[in-house]
Design a protein around this nucleic acid. Sequence first.
DNA 1: TCTACTATTGATCATACGATCAATAAGATG
DNA 2: CATCTTATTGATCGTATGATCAATAGTAGA
Lengths: 210, 210
Amino acid sequence: MSSPTRKKAARKSPAERAAEIADAAHDLALEQGLSAVTLRAVAARIDVAPALVAHYEPDMQALIASTFSSIVAAELAEVDALVAVLPTPRERLAAMLATLLDGSRDDVTVIWVEAWALGRRNEALAASVRDEMDAWQAMIRGVVEAGVASGEFETDDPAAAAWQLLGMIDGLNAQALVRWGDAADRGSLISHAVEGMLGLARGALAPPPR
Amino acid sequence: MSSPTRKKAARKSPAERAAEIADAAHDLALEQGLSAVTLRAVAARIDVAPALVAHYEPDMQALIASTFSSIVAAELAEVDALVAVLPTPRERLAAMLATLLDGSRDDVTVIWVEAWALGRRNEALAASVRDEMDAWQAMIRGVVEAGVASGEFETDDPAAAAWQLLGMIDGLNAQALVRWGDAADRGSLISHAVEGMLGLARGALAPPPR
DNA sequence: TCTACTATTGATCATACGATCAATAAGATG
DNA sequence: CATCTTATTGATCGTATGATCAATAGTAGA
């Protein structure tokens, strides 16, 4: 109804059109990955001439970077909201691991993996990756520090532990991306690993046996 | 001396030329990443017409896949040799973690990350990635099983533990790739994490304080 | 030496990418 | 209704990719 051999127009306010472009890039990235966010693909998705996208977004590398940031920041906010309501650091950590490793966010994992690769040739994207990684690490560190303060966790270096946790989560998710098939559940053993890392008793982080 | 505005010839045996092409792809990948392994780039590196590369390698996606396999298999063999000589599973595991997380193989990490991303659009590469991941997991599993047999490690599922370990290592390395700067040492805390995972006493995997 | 084989190449095609710009037309403003 | 502002577009450029094929030239064998 909208795309085949069709060419029209439609005039919108700059703000509205800019938002539409950003949304198209956002959705495209989630559906097909960051590398699918291309001048022509974005234009086609909102049924507009490629030149219009270029007009609003003179630098595609920047659009890719901001699209990445938008997606990842939203994920962080979502997880943060989910976790913040829980009473103890131990529960917050367990819930965080559970939700990040249940496979429900594989589309975002694709974004991460592509960003690591593309970031080597897109400096703006690389900067965004560093920023978002810092934000994630800060969130995790908050939980770890709270746990240390309450005496539930034990570690000399909460910042390093947060990096470690982030790396473990990213690695397991990236891995599952490729092995999706005989996937097996990631997150089954990570609890024991994290317990060891933070000086918890074995099973302290085990998810409630539903 | 060899490249600028120069065009000659040089006739070699098919086997020799094929090997030269494979080597060029191999080196290019290690130096600039898998995405730099392109028909023209490979041809330029050995000072040959692009068409010749296409003649020997009719499918570039296949060349990229085999280049990936070659690099990663070599890394596995290297680490395996390094570790196999050690007497106990605990020492083998500690040495493995140490050598894989000391940052000396970041060029290979780039290959891994790019392979995860490119594999989504290159089926041959995706298959190679799965194969090499399986090979790595098998190697790690061997160490874990030996540890369980000797009573040093404790886990219900050595195969799952091996996947977990592989994911942790990959994730930490991929992460360090981007944060190279304030890198901090990966591998400092992972020992405790792995101890927790395999039921070891705290510090059992700590690298010998040199 | 001459010939037959074949490794090698130049030319060219088709595709996809980002980018630029003058021309157009939609809509607000008077 | 007439005019002006500007959102939008078609056309086009330059680059990079993989791929194909007839033509060339090096070399081994007769």
